[in-house]
Nucleic acid binder design. Structure first.
Lengths: 337, 337
DNA sequence: TTGTAAGCGTTATCAC
DNA sequence: GTGATAACGCTTACAA
């Protein structure tokens, strides 16, 4: 066969030369329906017959055609992850966890990136509705109403976002990690703590802000909230000026990625971290431990989030339990000077 | 709808409540086959009829069911990427590129991880054969024969591996990047250059070694080849002892990931890079630029590799052209002291 | 326990 | 230009 997917007509309408249950049936001298039964519910078929059928299947190197199976059943054994930006290291963790858990349940994972607007994402989601048994919305740009509408059509879970209603979200327990982070800063003598938020539309960015505000309120310090910032290294780099000019002696950023940008751009202009400014991120992405200084961060169990999302979809056993977060102490935080 | 994928029987055998071409046909008062035609080859249908059909489709918010379409056509508009280890940052780049290009052609990407043995990978691949129109083997552990067998059944392309025969591989032009790397080291005064190879089974690791040996041969220096090493940070960390004891004053590693490990473990034991030892990696993965010192590396166009793989699958226009590699100069290399 | 037959939502081959 | 009709490969009542 050539390497091109769309090359040449398939002969006789037979799309692939792969063996079917009909081939097995002929070989084992039974009806195709019996083959189907033997394959799916061996208990409902005579043991000897099952044996014969299995032998034939083996001999023909038969694999059920999941597409053909999906048509009558409506089940594809496929789960889809929809992400706005596959570039984001946060989604790596999620995808990885989801892929592993899916594989464990013998499901396949579909990845769709919406890159652009929520509009594009909605289109992608609607397409996926047919091909997947469930949807995982990871860094979605859809609005609550759109998500709820989708959830009415297919099992769906969101990650790091709660849209309320009947929609299940895999959410972090921010209090623990954020509490520890703020406590840590206060113990180091910081009294003015900055928060560098992500995009205005990010649900989780606002939750992180709230958690910080609450933790600070309980601890005789104050919060300065900066302007909304792109959750990228570039975004962080662009924010350095504002951070430096503010009275904050420590800044918690919406995510590690932008703090990596702060670190890099800061270093270029002689900013001493943590001497001049202490920095904390969120997520604990790959790479946040080998910057200079390595980044102190509130770890989100990304892998577990992906796993949990799949498990929720597959078993519906959603305990509603929040994923634990924890402070990972590294060297980007130090005493106020 | 509940959140569980496998919950409750679907009523009446009708798997989904989604509108079908039959619904459109009724609404537009034509035969379903005409609807299908209008949707696929509007030219072959009366313009007015097409209009009516489109309006009806719009009104019903119709989306073709890709599963149902795939059955008679044998085409799923889905491409599968098979990777051994989704943890590897190298595959991020590849997946990202593949996902983008696939989306651009209105194809969906399936991710499968084989984690374990080549055996497991073979099973995964055979399953995928039914669901995908083409296969991309990214960090495969399959042997040449198995790959060629798969390629006989479905369009297939390998990345960073050449199995010969009719199988297309997306391969790098190592000479340029490796030549520059060796040239750079020699110019810095290094005369004994080490190569820290990846796993013994890695095809591309051997090519990298050959490229280095060839480049060194041309430049009055010599190569020391270390033992095969796991292509992970742990692998690199474990190799530090050997590197330090060897006469090599500069080491090129199979990939960035392991060099990150060398860097971290080396720093712990007071190894000065590049003072004591110059280090070069391969790939230029995310994160290799924010270590201390940032890693000099031979960049592989990972994103482009993913893109190219998809394009090759979709258009069969494989020019056989090798992807350019280049030396990215950072601070992990310095003069021999 | 097994066979018969209808149906899943499309596409494709015929006629008309 | 459009309508019947038969696939595609599998599942699933319902009968036997």
């Amino acid at each position: 066969m050539s390497s091109a997917v769309d090359e040449g007509p398939r002969p006789g309408g037979r799309p692939s030369g792969a063996p079917t249950i009909y081939d097995i049936a002929r070989l084992a001298d039974v009806d195709p329906s019996t083959v189907s039964r033997a394959l799916n519910r061996p208990g409902r078929v005579n043991a000897k017959t099952v044996e014969r059928i299995m032998a034939a299947a083996e001999q023909l190197r038969f694999r059920v055609n999941p597409i053909a199976r999906a048509l009558p059943t409506g089940r594809t054994r496929t789960l889809a992850v929809l992400v706005a930006d596959i570039t984001n290291p946060v989604v790596f963790g999620i995808i990885r966890g989801a892929a592993q858990e899916a594989a464990a349940h013998d499901y396949t994972l579909l990845i769709a990136e919406s890159e652009e607007s929520g509009e594009r994402e909605a289109t992608a989601a609607r397409r996926l509705l047919h091909s997947a048994d469930g949807l995982i919305l990871a860094t979605t740009r859809l609005d609550d109403a759109a998500i709820r509408a989708l959830a009415r059509e297919k099992p769906l879970v969101t990650i790091n976002r709660d849209v309320g209603g009947a929609v299940v979200g895999v959410l972090p327990d921010l209090a623990a990690g954020v509490g520890a982070a703020v406590e840590h800063l206060v113990a180091l003598g910081h009294r003015v703590i900055g928060y560098l938020p992500g995009p205005a539309t990010s649900w989780i960015s606002e939750r992180r802000r709230e958690a910080i505000e609450e933790a600070v309120r309980a601890r005789d310090a104050e919060v300065v909230v900066f302007g909304h910032t792109a959750p990228t290294r570039e975004g962080g780099a662009a924010a350095v000026d504002a951070l430096v000019r503010s009275p904050a002696t420590a800044v918690i950023g919406y995510n590690d990625l932008m703090m990596l940008g702060v670190l890099a751009a800061g270093a270029e202009r002689g900013l001493d971290v943590p001497g001049d400014l202490s920095l904390i991120g969120f997520d604990d992405i790959f790479g946040s431990d080998f910057t200079t200084p390595p980044l102190t961060t509130v770890r989100m169990p990304l892998l577990e989030a992906g796993r949990r999302a799949v498990r929720t979809l597959l078993t519906s056993e959603n305990t509603g339990e929040l994923l634990p977060t924890e402070l990972v102490l590294r060297a980007s935080t130090g005493p106020r000077t």
